[in-house]
Simulated scan of single mutants.
Amino acid sequence: MSATHLLTGAGSGIGAALAERLHARGETLVLLARSGERAAELESRYPGSRVLAVDLADPEAVTALTGLPDELDSVLHVAGVVDLAPVAEQPLAQLRAQVDVNLVSPAVLTHLCLPAVRRRRGTFVFVNSSAGLSASADWSAYAASKFGLRALADSLRAEEVEHGVRVTTVFPSRTATPMQEKVHEQEGRTYDASRWISPATVAETILHVLDLPEDATIPEVTIRPVVARAN
């Protein structure tokens, strides 16, 4: 029987690389899209997938989400947003958006999907960030959301082990994605994708987690680029 995966962030970056690999393997995808237009795009890109339109920036809308499968082999939290600013200048709307998309909606979605994952003794994968391990200047809102996401995963892992549910947090450092290009623009730095981790590399790491035999789990994995960061 084909495995069924629920995935956020399939439109670009790591999420797109992961969706492409899972779709190529013939596995069943349930994708979340932030709008009807993006949903139509994903349906065309991944034929046979189920696409549900919901904006992760609206946790109340996520709470009301319907159409989720009764059984899931994995839930893959990949979507995220970032806006850099010092604490003294961070607009409230940007702070809330990052916390809602990166933490609150994943928590709500996890709650909704937990019975389906339990039925398959499945896996939750939380794609975090190196900012979820150490917070730098101007990264307070994003890092706070990612620190919280790590705590959510840690608690879930401890709670669900008796149900056979595995929980993995992936901490990629800078990855060559549209989000990273935006970060470089906000930092006033020149973006060179060749310096950073390929989204496909992160996707392969996640596939390794999903493909583990039932006698093992990887609670956390950190991925860093080989090339040192330029000043």
Rank of each mutant, 00 (worst) to 15 (best):
A3H: 09
G9M: 04
A10R: 06
S12G: 03
S12R: 07
I14P: 11
G15A: 08
R25Y: 00
R25M: 04
L32Q: 01
A33P: 13
G36E: 09
G36Q: 04
E37Q: 14
A39M: 13
A40F: 00
A40C: 02
L42I: 11
E43S: 14
S44P: 00
Y46L: 01
R50P: 01
R50N: 00
V51Q: 07
A53Y: 06
P59T: 14
E60D: 14
D70A: 15
E71R: 12
E71C: 07
L72H: 10
S74F: 09
H77D: 04
V78K: 02
A79T: 04
G80I: 06
G80K: 05
G80Q: 02
D83F: 14
D83S: 12
L84V: 00
P91E: 01
Q94V: 13
R96I: 13
R96K: 14
A97P: 14
Q98M: 15
Q98F: 07
L103K: 11
H111K: 10
H111M: 01
C113S: 05
C113G: 09
L114H: 13
P115S: 03
V117T: 07
R120D: 01
R120T: 10
G122W: 02
T123D: 03
S129I: 05
S130Y: 08
G132K: 11
A135D: 08
S136K: 14
D138S: 13
W139I: 00
A141Q: 05
A143Q: 12
A144D: 08
A144Y: 07
S145G: 13
G148R: 02
G148V: 10
L149K: 04
R150T: 08
A151L: 10
L152S: 02
D154H: 08
L156W: 05
R157S: 07
E159I: 03
V161W: 09
V161T: 11
H163W: 12
G164N: 06
V165E: 05
V167T: 06
V170P: 13
A176V: 03
T177K: 14
M179N: 09
Q186C: 11
E187K: 14
Y191V: 11
D192R: 15
D192A: 15
I197L: 15
P199G: 11
T201K: 12
V202E: 10
A203D: 04
L207E: 04
D211Q: 10
L212K: 11
P213L: 06
E214T: 13
A216V: 15
V221K: 02
P225H: 05
V226F: 11
V227P: 02
A230N: 12
A230D: 12
N231G: 12
